[in-house]
Design a protein around this nucleic acid. Structure first.
Lengths: 211, 211
DNA sequence: TAGATTGTTAATCGATTAACAATC
DNA sequence: TAGATTGTTAATCGATTAACAATC
C-alpha cells in the first residue's frame, strides 16, 4: 500500500543515502540541500530530490533537508526498525564470517541458529552458536517462525535447500550461492554473487590496460 | 581499442552468460539459440543477441550459437585468460574467508600475500600465507608489481589504505569496506557492499508484508 | 530449397536530468 | 521581503524490446 512501484534503481540507492546521512550526523551537520548532498554522494541534485519524493516530501523549500529527520525516515523506509528472525545455512568460511558479521544488528536481523550438512561441523561452535544438523532446518524454521535464511552453501545443493526453506515458510533469502534461485514470487531473494563481482573486476581491468 | 563503450548493464550480464554456458557445457549441450538461452537465463532473446553483438558475431543464422565457442569467447571478453598478481589486506573474518575462496583461480587472480595492521595477527598463518605487517604493503606492491588488492578492512581505514595502494601502483581494488573509495580514474574499483545488500533485502521484506 | 535464427535497425519504454513555479 | 531550495512536470537520454531483412 502507498507504494508507487519504486524501481530497483531507486531502492539500491537508498542504503547509500542512509550511509551518507549517518556520516553527516556523525559530523553534527544538521541540514543539507540536495545540491550539497549531490556533491558528496555523487548523484545529481535532481535525482536526489526525485528519489526522496517517491517516499514523501521530506524537504523544505529554501532550507533543504534536516539530516537527522531524513536519516530516520530512510531507516523506516528501509525497514530497519523491523525485527526479523533469521537462520544461517552453511558454516564454511563465508558462513563463519557472516555469523560474526556485525551488520545484522543494525538491520534488525536476529540469527537464531546456524546449520550445516557436514557431520564433522555439527556440534562445533561459532560464536555462541552450536552448529545444528541441516536435517533440522524444516522443524526449526516452522516452529520458530523464522523469516529469513542466509544461504552460504556450494551451488550444488543451493536450490534444493532453498526449496526446503520455502516449504518451511521462509519469506526471504540472502543468497551467497552462485546460482539464481527459483522461488515463488512471494519469497524475496537478494543475492551476493562474488564470482560475478570478481569477473566484472577482471573485465574492467583488462579494459583498462588498452587505454 | 575496439571497445564501443559497453554499458555497465551489459558488462554485469556477461558473468551470467558465462555461468549458464558452463552449465550447458557440463550437460554436453553443443548448440543453443538465443530463444532457448532466453528461457533458461531469463533475459529476452533480443537482449541476448544485442549483448553478444557488442563483442562480435558469435552466432550463425539458422543455427544459433555454439556453446563451447561462445563460452570460450566470453571467457576472453571477461579477461579470464589473463593472470593478475593480487594481495589481500585485512585478515579478519571476511578476509580469511576470501583467502580461502576458490573462485580466484578461475579468474586468474594469484594472491601473493596477506596483510594486517593488527600486531596480534601478524605472523599467524591463513592457509599458506603468513600474515604480513600492513606497513610493508607499499614495498611489497611496488617490488612485486602487484596489480590488484582485495580490501577487507573496516571502513575507517579504508580510504587511507586505498591511497597507499594507489600510490604503490595498484591498478584495481576489490573493495569490501562499506565506503565509496576515491581513486584516480585509471584505477578500477569493484565494491561488494554487504550492508547495502542487506538493507535492500530489509526493504524488500518490509514491502512484501504489505502485499 | 525451406526453415530457422541471426545481426541490426527502428520503436518503445523507463530512468535520469533540466527547468521552473511554488513556497519556506 | 528576497533568496534559497524544494517538489514536480517536461525534456532528454539510454537501455530494452520488437521487427525483419540477411543468410546459414
Amino acid at each position: 500500500m502507498g507504494n508507487k512501484n519504486i524501481s530497483m534503481a531507486v531502492i539500491r540507492r537508498l542504503p547509500k543515502y542512509y550511509r551518507y546521512l549517518a556520516d553527516l550526523l556523525a559530523k553534527d551537520i544538521q541540514r543539507i540541500s540536495s545540491k550539497e548532498l549531490s556533491e558528496i554522494i555523487g548523484f545529481t541534485a535532481s535525482q536526489i530530490r526525485q528519489d526522496l519524493n517517491n517516499f514523501g516530501g521530506f524537504g523544505q523549500q529554501g532550507y533543504g533537508y534536516n539530516v537527522e529527520a531524513l536519516h530516520r525516515e530512510i531507516a523506516k523506509i528501509l525497514g530497519l526498525d523491523k525485527k526479523y528472525k533469521a537462520i544461517l545455512v552453511g558454516s564454511g568460511n563465508l558462513g563463519q564470517a557472516l555469523t560474526n558479521y556485525s551488520g545484522f544488528k543494525n538491520a534488525g536481523f536476529d540469527i537464531m541458529a546456524v546449520f550445516d550438512a557436514n557431520p564433522r561441523m555439527i556440534g562445533l561452535k561459532i560464536r555462541d552458536y552450536e552448529i545444528m544438523d541441516s536435517d533440522l532446518i524444516e522443524s526449526f524454521v516452522s516452529e520458530n517462525n523464522v523469516e529469513i535464511a542466509i544461504l552460504c552453501i556450494p551451488k550444488e545443493g543451493a536450490q534444493q535447500v532453498a526449496d526446503r526453506l520455502v516449504k518451511s515458510g521462509i519469506k526471504g533469502i540472502w543468497n551467497f550461492a552462485p546460482v539464481d534461485l527459483d522461488v515463488p514470487s512471494s519469497v524475496i531473494v537478494e543475492s551476493v554473487n562474488l564470482t560475478e563481482s570478481l569477473f566484472t573486476l577482471s573485465y574492467l581491468m583488462k579494459d583498462g590496460e588498452e587505454a
